[in-house]
């Protein structure tokens, strides 16, 4: 695999290898010099057609920690808003000598198109496409769960038997989709919780258990509870009666949090709507992994960039394959 477009393409062994390389990257955090020379003279382009300060900063930090040159291309105020097509943008970036393109786009499948249309010969990393996938978010979530669970013993392991409940707007969430495929590949027991209006069609074919009530899922004592962000525009679209009711039925309230086991991880991809899908008590608790997820995001993105960009060789398979 030359690109990272979807966690659906990741086999268990490849996913574990990627998480292990991220462990190596995490080790560099407490060194005298944290910057690694592995991507010297390589150019990584951040191509963002949709706002995302966190993901963009995380990719930028990761590329810089590997000594790559970073060009950030934000669609707002660029020629994209003047009607330049994805193809023209890609060819412009090719002319600039991009070795990797990190792309965030509002259309599902944009990263796939960039990778497979034959416009450009660079590694494509999907940083979120529409409601489709956000693979590096799922990888950093899996990394965070594995590290909390196994600590120094995490290397080489999957997430076999680890129970994860993902709660919220599954219908529109690329984070949820990427997590479902990845967690399943790693052997986790995945439960989805959402109001019926926020569950996608065809969910019965996914390798998950589905619950309409949060309390029903929490009664199964999950090892991790992942709360998804509720976007304000969804509230206007009447997927649920009111913010207050959503919080009461599907939010991780202080009461629900208090009833969780002491080792339960509370996860959120950020930014959080405190008091809506997650209470401050839960978000700021010792079980909360919210800040660890941000830190680990840089390590995961370093691992992805390193594996996809550092080496060469025509038929190399940087993420899958050879050890």
């Amino acid at each position: 695999m030359r690109h990272l477009l979807s966690t659906r393409d990741l086999e268990r062994a490849s996913a574990i290898r990627l998480l292990d390389v991220a462990e190596d990257m995490a080790q560099t955090a407490d060194r005298a010099v944290r910057t690694l020379p592995a991507l010297r003279d390589k150019t990584v382009v951040n191509l963002f057609f949709e706002d995302s300060t966190r993901t963009r900063l995380s990719f930028e930090a990761a590329a810089k920690r590997l000594s790559a040159n970073v060009i950030t291309f934000s669609a707002k105020g660029s020629s994209v808003s003047k009607g330049e097509s994805l193809k023209d943008t890609a060819q412009t970036l090719l002319a600039m000598g991009a070795d990797a393109i990190v792309v965030r786009h509002h259309d599902s499948g944009a990263a796939h198109r960039l990778a497979n249309a034959g416009w450009i010969d660079a590694a494509i990393i999907n940083a979120g496409d529409g409601t489709h996938e956000h693979p590096t978010q799922a990888l950093l979530d899996a990394f965070t769960i594995r590290q909390r669970r196994f600590g120094a013993d995490a290397r080489g392991r999957g997430l076999d038997g680890v129970r994860v409940a993902i709660v919220g707007d599954i219908l529109h969430s690329r984070v949820a989709r990427s997590n479902v495929w990845l967690l399943h590949a790693l052997g986790a027991d995945v439960h989805l919780v959402a109001p019926r209006t926020l569950l996608p069609h065809g969910i019965d074919t996914w390798p998950v258990a589905v619950h309409e009530h949060l309390d029903e899922a929490l009664a199964l004592a999950p090892d991790a509870v992942m709360m998804l962000r509720i976007q304000s525009e969804r509230m206007r679209d009447a997927f649920f009666p009111s913010a207050r009711e959503y919080g009461r039925e599907w939010g991780l309230t202080a009461e629900r949090f208090a009833a969780l086991g002491p080792d339960t991880m509370v996860m959120h991809p950020g930014p959080m709507n405190r008091g809506l899908e997650i209470s401050s008590v839960a978000a700021d608790s010792s079980g909360s992994t919210v800040l660890a997820q941000v830190t680990n995001g840089v390590f995961i993105r370093m691992a992805v960039l390193y594996l996809l960009v550092a080496g060469s060789g025509s038929d190399a398979d940087p993420i899958g394959g050879q050890g």
């Binding site: 690694l36 020379p37 003279d41 550092a310």
Partner: peptide, 21 residues
């Protein structure tokens, strides 16, 4: 001490996974 990320032939060979330091 792993040296994979410091090799001078990184860009000429297929990517190798580092070993723990």
């Amino acid at each position: 001490l792993d040296i994979t990320l410091y090799r001078d032939d990184l860009a000429r060979t297929p990517t190798r996974a580092p070993a723990p330091t």
